[in-house]
Design a protein around this nucleic acid. Structure first.
Lengths: 217, 217
DNA sequence: GCCAGTTTCATACGGTCGTAAGACTGCCCT
DNA sequence: AGGGCAGTCTTACGACCGTATGAAACTGGC
């Protein structure tokens, strides 16, 4: 249940322009939202020609979709691997806290201040609520990914009815997805800046404490 | 800790056209988002003239802001009243569960299927994440409203450090705000439709159980 | 050195958007 | 009777948007 970084980058490939567009778009979408960023904004930020978006991605929608698909896949893969490891560690039946940790750790790793995936997480959170119709498709595939976790939780708490598990997982995900910056900043203002955003390890423990309590009860 | 409806409508006033625009806009914004709804969509839905929005509200932004301001005020007032009643009932020091109930009950009341404020809640949740710059101003005033609750929670759990209370309140709010339909539908698909959205009274108890557990622990 | 391909470039098209301007309508007050 | 006015209507302007087009530049293979 550690936050230490691991894994290496995939081979970043081919067309520089395509990558420039991808990165600039992800960043701008994350910061200002899909609708508030024009193709012209993106290409200007990337320092490439206006037509690049349509040439390399087909359309603005397709660009959004591709970013979303890639980041979602990466996040889900990290989560699945952690869950798998937790299974190995506990003979296929990990306790609630370990399951939740597999869910929490990847986004928290990304959220770490020095991590360049911070913006990717911000993008994902935003895309989730402003999504295109096509993105809802991906979110539906996400369900099959979530099932791994609901199944694990059901196994860890066989006394709980299925529906109860789904609800609590729903609550936990809400808690997790609410970690967008604006909401955090509001709470931090309330706390006079003493909430200490930097310490993601402490945040993980806090979140696990809270979520586990709701699950164990 | 009941969900029974109460209170009467305020005097709905003056210009019919203004109200028609207000209602149509709230509905369309809630369903499709601010950016995806044009002034022409709104006036068509309301059955009024295109110029009505600018005449009665000044601009599209101002219209969004006015809807948001009114609904936020209403929600906050309901919450504040419930908190006040809880204070009266417990000599100024209500237990955690009662404080959380004051936070949860108003939006859950609105969310009830037969309630015509259902769309207002959907609007509020959406506006919170797609907000204009001006809306962030209202959210900052919201902080002073939240403080009532963080203060009450601190009083109920004097052994907990302030910061801990803020974090847990942050988690609870995330859990609450995630009750948008899309997220709920995703979980409900996972549960093969057995999550029973209709029964808001049961949902309230479930949410209180979960949140209280995280707070008491 | 030239050709086929891929990629980049400048530019323009059609469309939608928010907003403003000005004419028009109905109603109240004196 | 008529003037003032709040409200409604039609229409249009200027801006910005996503995308398509065709020419230009670049690339590696022969």
């Amino acid at each position: 249940m550690s936050l230490e970084v691991e894994g290496a980058d995939e081979a970043q490939t081919e067309a520089v322009t395509k990558n420039l567009v991808f990165t600039a778009a992800e960043r701008l979408f994350a910061l200002h939202g899909f609708q508030n960023v024009s193709v012209r904004d993106i290409t200007a930020e990337a320092g490439v020609n206006l037509a690049s978006v349509n040439y390399h991605f087909g359309s603005k929608d397709a660009l959004l979709f591709e970013i979303f698909r890639r980041r979602t896949t990466e996040l889900n893969r990290e989560r699945a691997r952690l869950l798998h490891e937790a299974n190995d560690r506990h003979g296929g039946k990990p306790p609630v806290r370990e399951i939740l940790a597999a869910l929490f750790i990847p986004p928290l790793r990304w959220m770490a201040p020095e991590n360049d995936r911070r913006i990717s997480l911000q993008f994902l959170i935003r895309a989730r609520s402003e999504g295109t119709e096509e993105i809802r498709t991906v979110l539906r595939t996400d369900v099959t990914h979530l099932r791994r976790f609901s199944d694990a939780l059901t196994a860890a708490r066989p006394d709980l009815p299925d529906v109860e598990v789904y609800w609590r997982l729903h609550f936990v995900l809400g808690m997790l997805h609410n970690n967008r910056f604006s909401e955090f900043d509001r709470m931090n203002a309330l706390a006079d800046g003493r909430m200490g955003e930097g310490d993601t390890a402490a945040l993980l423990e806090r979140m696990l404490d809270f979520a586990e309590a709701g699950f164990i009860r």
